[in-house]
Nucleic acid binder design. Structure first.
Lengths: 330, 330
DNA sequence: TTGTACGCGTTATCAA
DNA sequence: TTGATAACGCGTACAA
């Protein structure tokens, strides 16, 4: 492999001069700059980042920790992260944990092994103490999912308010019996959205019925099962599912039971993933700015890496009600 | 930061001994091994990978080059890659190019800057010469999409055969007028699937009509537009879309025009992405073993990294016809 | 404006 | 079985 020494020899200068040309700093005469550039060209030289990284004590790698890469929600965020990262000459290490604690640990440790300069975590944190300890010594940002008990900055949306808005919208359509299909309450967002749902009902003097609240997992099948369970007991006129994927399952279940959407039952989802526009009826939902979430998280972490004294403020981005075909005024 | 020297001092041994304990090689007395381990524990020492990587001239990073992370097809492959990688102590660098040549170049160059030990490319290659040149000096595997003119090993499926099977299946159902909604023919898979479609028609003495063959892009809207264009000219009884996402668009278009699926028109897709089971009707399709494609590609590239003399054979994995609700015997 | 020489943290060779 | 020390390739302080 050709090194900076080879280039120096070819250009008849010292390695220091080559390095100066490479990094565009320090004084270099035009003449030498040219001959260095020609030598680089001739030898097809590319600096070895392993050497550079060690010398500079940086990896220029950002670790993106997420539960699952197959979830379109995360992949949109990831895209935002990647776009900002590449503009700033950072690279993204893909770390999907599948909620495996062991795996999470392996990935997190990369940062104290200096293979990553910072971490963006979209994971519900499993090993809280370890994570917190890590954040004292290294740049870490939480994105979308976060743990508010822990003093680690986050970029997210106002889940309470968003769920409130979703529920309130159903109420404004005339719905009186509104079911909630929630996901696993180990997620903070799930707990917050449930609160938002409850508050909206209270504010409008609608009785809260435990039978209408289901804690499903996260996934199409869970939404499908949940709605069947609910409707087997009681007819509803509105359904709020805390994730589009749950809503899609619910739509299928509702259809199978012979109800029509939105005439009999209005359904609203959450996230605004692409699929929501592809189904029939298209899905009314609360849109999260997924791409922007990723962008903001990346910007924060990069700023933080550059300046360790910079303490990011938490950021809550705006959600948006997107009305499509699955909801209708009664 | 604590280094191997700190550990050596604490354990009252040399750095060489610490290194031996760390890497489990060479002879170390049980006594010293223990005291090194205790020192590591006490100081909470973690080896700096930047130093190790430079010394060993490896990054233990594999670069995953793909067009778009948001496409569920690629994210499934990626999962297969990641799972194999982590088992072998490799990490995955996420490189989505968005078909941007500049960006592709940036990512590809990481390998001759030694930040990656190998590349798995799912991209239709833009800069063929550069790519080929690179593959002479570095481990590269093509996965799913590949360029057969170039001598770079690949893992894929038999796209010709798979498309033939899809078309043949429609014919076996009694379809006489079968449309093809293809994606962009810059992709090899698109060209191969078209060939498979044509061959199946020929083998069954069905007239090939250019009006029934549309080169759409890739995406839901494209499928939707394509089917409207086709049906505005001529009624068909079968549609083969070369990607599920196109098929989903087609389903929507067909429905809007008042035809029923599968009674009036049978539709078959390709890929078997998750959404295909969530729509109504659920989609008959040719399933690609996406996860396995990723796994195989990762296994090959790792084997190749370990042994530069190992020349991988091309691998074609089996596809599978998955029959659901969108097709029916006439 | 340029060059010499050191050190980033690790592994591996060699001699003891 | 152990330790001293030379690399790995780079950037930069310092001297010139």
């Amino acid at each position: 492999m050709t090194t900076i020494y080879d280039v120096a020899k070819e250009a008849k200068v010292s390695v220091a001069t080559v390095s100066r040309v490479l990094n565009n700093n320090g004084y270099v005469s035009e003449e030498k700059r040219m001959s260095v550039k020609m030598a680089i060209e001739k030898l097809n030289y590319r600096p070895n980042l392993l050497g550079r990284n060690l010398r500079k004590s940086e990896s220029r790698i950002i670790l993106a920790l997420l539960p699952s890469i197959s979830n379109p929600f995360y992949s949109k965020i990831l895209k935002g992260i990647e776009d900002v990262a590449i503009k700033n000459e950072y690279n993204i290490l893909l770390c999907s944990t599948d909620s495996d604690r062991e795996r999470e640990r392996i990935y997190l440790n990369l940062i104290n092994q200096k293979l990553a300069d910072g971490i963006i975590s979209m994971n519900p944190i499993q090993d809280k103490d370890f994570f917190l300890e890590l954040s004292k010594n290294y740049p870490i940002i939480q994105c979308s999912e976060y743990n508010s008990n822990i003093k680690i900055p986050y970029v997210s949306i106002d889940n309470f308010r968003a769920a409130y808005d979703a529920t309130h919208y159903l109420i404004s359509l005339g719905c009186k019996k509104i079911a909630l299909i929630n996901s696993n309450e180990k997620y903070l967002y799930a707990r917050l959205r449930k609160e938002g749902y409850l508050q909206a009902l209270r504010d409008n003097n609608i009785t809260i019925k435990d039978d209408l609240i289901i804690c499903a997992g996260i996934g199409f099948q869970n939404g499908y099962d949940a709605v069947k369970r609910i409707l087997s007991k009681e007819k509803v006129d509105g359904i709020f599912a805390v994730a589009d994927i749950l809503a899609l399952g619910a739509i299928k279940g509702v259809k199978e039971l012979g109800y029509s959407i939105p005439s009999d039952i209005s359904i609203i989802g959450f996230d605004d993933i692409e699929i929501s526009t592809m189904v029939t009826p298209t899905l009314t939902t609360i849109a999260q700015p997924m791409y922007e979430l990723g962008q903001q998280a990346a910007k924060l972490i990069i700023k933080r890496i550059k300046d360790p004294n910079f303490i990011p403020e938490n950021i809550l981005l705006k959600h948006q009600l997107v009305i499509r075909e699955s909801t209708k005024k009664i």
